[in-house]
Amino acid sequence: MSFLDISILDTKKVIRTINDQYNVDYSDYSATSFKQSIDNVIKINNLDSVDNLIYKIQNESSFEEIFYRDISIPGTEMFRDPAAWRELAKILKEKTDCTNCRIWVPFCSTGEETYTLAIILKELGISDKIKVIVSNRSLLNIQKIKKGEFPIKQLETNNANYIRYKNNNSSNLDKYYSIEGSTGKINLDLFSNFEFADYAQYIDKGPTKISLILFRNKLIYYNLTLQEKMLETIFNSLSPTGLLFIGIKETIEFNVIKDRFVLVDKDEGIYRKKLNNN
C-alpha cells in the first residue's frame, strides 16, 4: 500500500476547483477523510496526481457524475451494528399510528442501509404502510441502488450481521437476493413503496413530514459547521416527534441544535425531534 500523500494545500486546490466547476462546496468536510476520498478518486480513475484530477474536473464535463460516485464513501455492510437495527425495528413495530408515514434516507451512499431498511419493513409487514424516500447527490449510485446491486464479497459479512440481528443462527438473507456474476441483487419487490429521488440531493433542502431519517455514519464526514447545517435540514424535514437514527459513535452532543432533540437511545444513536420548539 502506498499513500498519495496529498497536502493540505492540494486538498484546498481540489475543493476550490470543484466549487468553481460544479458549484458544490466541500470545504466543510472532515479534513482527513476528505483527503482520503480525493486519494481514492485519483486511484480509481488512474489519474496518478492531484494536478491530473484538477485537469479532468476543469476539462471533462462528463467527469462530474463520476466524481460524485467515487467521492462518496461506500456503505460498509448490511445490518451493520445489528443491535441498533433491532432497536429500530422495535420502535417501528410499536408505531401503530403509522399510516402514510414517510422515511427518508439522505445521502444514501451505496445502498446497504436502504436494503437493510427494506428487509426490516418487509419482515414487520409494514412495507405497504410506509413510504421510503432515498436520495443522494450521486445519480449513478441511485441508479445502482434502484437495481438493488451490491458486491457479493460482502455476502458473508451481511449474513453474519443478519444472524446477529435475528438472534437466530439458522436465519439467512438469501431469500432476499439473487446473484448475477459478481453482483448481488436485492429482490426488487422489496422496493414497492420506495421512491428513488432522481434529483441531486443538497445539504440545505429535504422532503417534509418525515417520521424517520436514517443518517448513519454520514455526520462523521462533516466538520461541526456542516453537521449543524445538515442537522438543521434534518430537523426541518422531521414531523414533530420524528426520529433520527445515526451511527453508534456519532453524537449531536457537540452541536448547538442538540437542544431541539431528545436522546432516545444513547447506545444505538437514536434521537427524537422535540415536540414543542420553534
Binding site: A31, T32, L224, G247, K249
Partner: peptide, 15 residues
C-alpha cells in the same frame, strides 16, 4: 480513527 484539524477526533467507515 483520525486526529483531525481543530484538535478533534474524526471517525470514518471508509473501507
Amino acid at each position: 480513527m483520525y486526529i483531525d484539524s481543530g484538535g478533534r477526533f474524526s471517525l470514518s467507515t471508509e473501507p
